[in-house]
Design a protein around this nucleic acid. Structure first.
Length: 467
RNA sequence: GGCGCCGUACCCAAGUGGUAAGGGAGAGGUCUGCAAAACCUUCAUGCACCGGUUCGAAUCCGGUCGGCGCCUCCA
């Protein structure tokens, strides 16, 4: 399977060619752990999970590294905002370190619920201060930095091709239009590599450095840690679209300036999840967490399925209506698989017939073509509905497809035996035989109120729990 | 103000030159004590609007209107 993917750097779909045959080095921008991730954040991690699964499906050995940003980032404009970690700490009365630990764990719990595979390496920024200092030193030695007002800045004018990926050369950016430009900067787009002049009181996260006690600039960690764990050139770097213009642009500048050659071969960016009033964002309070969806009665797989329905490079409109659509679809899907499993088990994948192979081939083509999951889902439904394919064959193919979907078809319970419910169902069966339909309906309502749904079939009564 | 993206049925959403995937919701039918489920059928002569290129356009070009993102931490 040859994987093709949209490379933001080239602005087109390219065939994926790894640096080392059969291996992929993958870096994905991780969370800032000062509060719970919202489902918009999670959409991007689902996209990255699909990417990794697709690469593994294509028989690549993937090494996946993700950062945990536990150094404070700013809540607001330029250097004037409050540090997010500090704010969270002040509001909750816990230390910044406790906050980071707590939300890191919460993040991975959310990922687990969504069947997002854990990175092979997840690295905290605060544990890699030495590497970041080392990178700034290299930049200093190569003449890309200057000191002003106590901070060390990266001079973008020293780096030819700055902003190439983001097409910034074409953009007439209004730096300072909405925020005050740091007067220390030679170029408004220069950025800080190392702060020693904190504007925040109670800054607790500080480290010694050759330039004084302080803390790192916010683009540094990804450059430093990705190089440490993946080498000075690696295959794929992912993130959300919002990272293109500033974060990734600056990462490229400082990384390539330091190492003197190309850094990342493929850049992939996930689009936003939109809500009625625009993008989902913590800063505006316009957001929903996975936990709140679960409280509302949604299964995490409803959300994963929902994300599968749109291409990762398209904005996806979130609403209760659209999520309910996904929930119904996912329920129907699981019900069908449950019935298939009751009929038989899967046959070995090798033994599927020509038509089944064709379905699987289409599926693989769609996955390999820049992760077209909507088409992959379409392939799956067509397969499920095809009366010419046997159930064992369908199951075999579905299980294989699920290596990408990650809905865990194999875990779907085929029958749920519960003696108490079975006894009540038998009582109702007796009532029906005696044509006491009033009693039968009473029992049906009773079970319905407990979330048990009954279906009378020619083979007897079946029941299932409603989600 | 600049840059980038988008506008497909009631909803979500694929499709980038060859005559509209898929899912959800809805409608009709079969079955059923009644339901539900299942199954069958149905559901955009049209892809924001106006012009153009072409044998042929949702797909390419120009314009208009509308939406989103980025330029500021941000998935």
């Amino acid at each position: 399977m040859k994987v093709k993917m949209y490379n933001t750097d080239a602005r087109k779909i390219e065939e994926f060619i790894p640096i080392l045959p059969g291996k992929v080095s993958l870096y994905t921008c991780g969370p800032t752990v000062y509060s719970n991730a919202h489902i918009g954040n999670l959409r991007t991690y689902i996209f990255e999970d699909l990417l990794r699964r697709a690469l593994e499906y294509a028989d690549y050995e993937v090494r996946h590294v993700m950062n945990i940003t536990d150094v404070g980032h700013l809540t607001d404009d330029a250097d004037d905002g409050e540090d997010k970690m500090l704010k969270s700490s002040r509001e909750s009365g816990r230390s910044v370190w406790d906050i980071a630990k707590f939300y890191t764990e919460a993040f991975f719990l959310d990922c687990e619920k969504l069947h997002i595979n854990r990175p092979h390496v997840s690295c905290a920024a605060t544990e890699h201060i030495d590497e970041m200092i080392g990178l700034v030193k290299r930049l200093e030695e190569r003449g890309f930095t200057y000191e002003a007002g106590g901070n060390i800045y990266f001079s973008i004018d020293k780096f030819p091709g700055y902003g190439k990926m983001a097409l910034l050369d074409k953009a007439d950016l209004q730096s300072g239009a909405r925020i005050a430009v740091d007067s220390n900067k030679k170029n408004p787009r220069d950025f800080v590599l190392w702060f020693t002049k904190s504007k925040f009181e109670h800054q607790t996260m500080m480290w010694d450095s050759p330039w004084g006690r302080g803390y790192p600039g916010w683009h540094l960690e990804c450059s430093a840690m990705s190089m440490k764990y993946l080498g000075e050139q690696f295959d794929i770097h992912c993130g959300g679209v919002d990272a293109i213009n500033v974060h990734h642009t600056n990462e490229i500048a400082q990384s390539e300036a330091a190492i003197g050659h190309k850094w990342v071969n493929y850049w992939m960016h996930g689009e936003f999840l939109l809500m009625k009033g625009g993008k989902m964002a913590k800063s505006t309070g316009n957001f929903i967490t996975l936990g709140s969806l679960i409280e509302e009665g949604y299964d995490p797989m409803d959300y994963r399925y929902f994300c599968l329905g749109a291409h990762y490079r398209s904005q996806l409109i979130f609403s209760r209506d659209s999520l309910d659509g996904a929930k119904n679809a996912r329920n129907n899907l699981f019900e069908r698989i449950r019935r298939l499993k009751e009929e038989s088990g899967p046959i070995p994948l090798k033994e599927i017939g020509a038509k089944g192979k064709a379905y699987l081939g289409d599926f693989q083509d769609h996955v390999a073509n820049d992760l077209n999951m909507p088409m992959a889902l379409s392939d799956m439904w067509t397969l499920i509905k095809d009366p010419e394919i046997s159930s064992p064959e369908k199951l075999a193919i579905l299980y294989d497809m699920d290596r990408i979907f990650g809905l865990e078809f194999e875990e779907i319970e085929s029958v749920d035996l519960d003696e108490e419910i079975l006894a009540i169902v038998r009582e109702r069966e007796a009532a029906r035989k005696g044509r006491d339909f009033r009693r039968a309906d009473e029992i049906r309502d009773l079970l319905a109120s407990r979330g048990i749904h009954l279906e009378d079939t020619p083979d007897g009564t079946r029941w299932k729990k409603l989600v």
